[in-house]
Nucleic acid binder design. Structure first.
Lengths: 242, 242
DNA sequence: CGAACAATTGAACCGATTCAAGATGCGTGG
DNA sequence: CCACGCATCTTGAATCGGTTCAATTGTTCG
């Protein structure tokens, strides 16, 4: 069932003033004036249903987004028309930052389930960052983090390692937002997981089966329970920075 | 011969005040006072010989670096002791930015040939960025660019596509710095190219041979000449953002 | 219930790696 | 200046992980 879904509706994310964008001020900001300015700049968006577009590739870059609930994916389309999923975005995470350099979105952002967002104009965020060092630092830090995530994915790994690392990543990201780290709702289809990890859906299926046989996890459709975190970590190898 | 090497010694890079870090102010800064402050913060480093370490993984993060001449590589080592090359850094490029988030270097930076650097303390850069919006923007823009580069590498591609894209990347990066875009000095060993692209050195060798047979390029040891840029671009597919 | 789509499973296939050998280039010392 | 030795690069043949193709089962929803 919708394990995370239900948590996503928790009070914490209900008011935009408390959405994850506010965390840009944290952990060290005591500047309440700046905090107020930040909250002023943040706008809640209308709720999204399944498979709705937030922005499209090539579109002019103006805002960045924070996930309040549900899940989003960002996808690129190469000249031959093949889609490639660049990332999944969980509650509490930002997306759209990769558009800063070209000044236009390079990917298309799409909701995966019933979801909600907060938005902020990037120009507002930049001027706030100039005023508040902690925001500037958090922003740069976040970008740095994204570089790591991308680098980790580009490492040469077996399909087994990639899937293990992917699950561990989801687990730790949910944990960080106070969701369960062992029970995860994989709302995205297998096809999307496979696409993101650059493998065939069949391979994902076979691996899930093997992991289950080995007692590492328990999966039924979208409902995943990690039963042996230690074993999964061992498979993943270099989980984080590496 | 050392095609790029000789260019690297051109006057433009001789004085640190004109090294690539200064470009953080560009293209739009007219704030000469800020420019002076930036130049103040930048320090030239002693020259590096082949295979010397700039910083090591796990070391505390304090400075970022700009390549003045030569070439550097950043490498990570996974738990099993396998090295992985994260990037090559050409004259005019920065490295060390991925250390912002963890607050420590996650890779080891090593000179590939006789090379030189400029350094800047990251704390100085952050405070300058807070004062000068153009620097802040350039910095964020650069980070955004790095995300793209990593994402491009993590795309599912054949060995052929990856090598073509790699060569095109080198070409365009050299071109951007006013070096030749068609004649490139591949000072790094085949082993390193292969490692960076996640393939076996043998595959790199075979591909170079094929590219040569197809009249796309002319390579002898480290001396590469791209003879058919159009064909190479076609092979590369989604070169840039994708 | 039945149609449409998603996930699973099995068998053939292919790209790239691995292993093993040979060729080439390069620095060193005679 | 040539001969030697070491390291890198190249080349060929066997192997393997993962994909592709094809068929089956399972799930969702009108």
């Amino acid at each position: 069932m919708a394990v995370n879904q239900s948590r996503a509706a928790a009070p914490y994310f209900l008011k935009c003033s408390q959405c994850s964008l506010r965390k840009l001020c944290l952990p060290d900001s005591i500047d309440s004036e700046g905090l107020a300015q930040l909250e002023e700049a943040i706008e809640p968006s209308a709720p999204y249903h399944d498979n709705q577009i937030v922005y499209e590739a090539e579109q002019c870059f103006d805002k960045i987004y924070a996930v309040k609930s549900g899940m989003f994916k960002t996808v690129t389309v190469d000249p031959e028309g093949n889609e490639h999923i660049v990332g999944f975005h969980l509650p509490g995470e930002l997306f759209g930052l990769d558009a800063i350099y070209p000044g236009k979105y390079i990917s298309t952002a799409i909701s995966i389930s019933t979801s909600s967002l907060c938005e902020i104009h990037y120009s507002d965020l930049e001027s706030l960052a100039a005023k508040l060092p902690s925001i500037q630092h958090q922003l740069l830090s976040l970008m740095s983090k994204e570089v790591h995530a991308s680098n980790a994915l580009s490492m040469d790994q077996t399909a087994e390692q990639k899937l293990a690392t992917f699950l561990l990543s989801l687990s730790s990201r949910y944990k960080q937002r106070d969701y369960s780290e062992s029970r995860i709702n994989l709302i995205m289809p297998r096809r999307d997981i496979a696409n993101y990890l650059n493998m065939a859906p069949e391979t994902v299926s076979r691996l899930f089966k093997r992991f289950q046989k080995e007692g590492i996890l328990d999966i039924k459709r979208t409902d995943l329970t990690i039963t042996d975190m230690r074993a999964l970590t061992a498979l993943g190898g270099c989980t984080g920075a590496c």
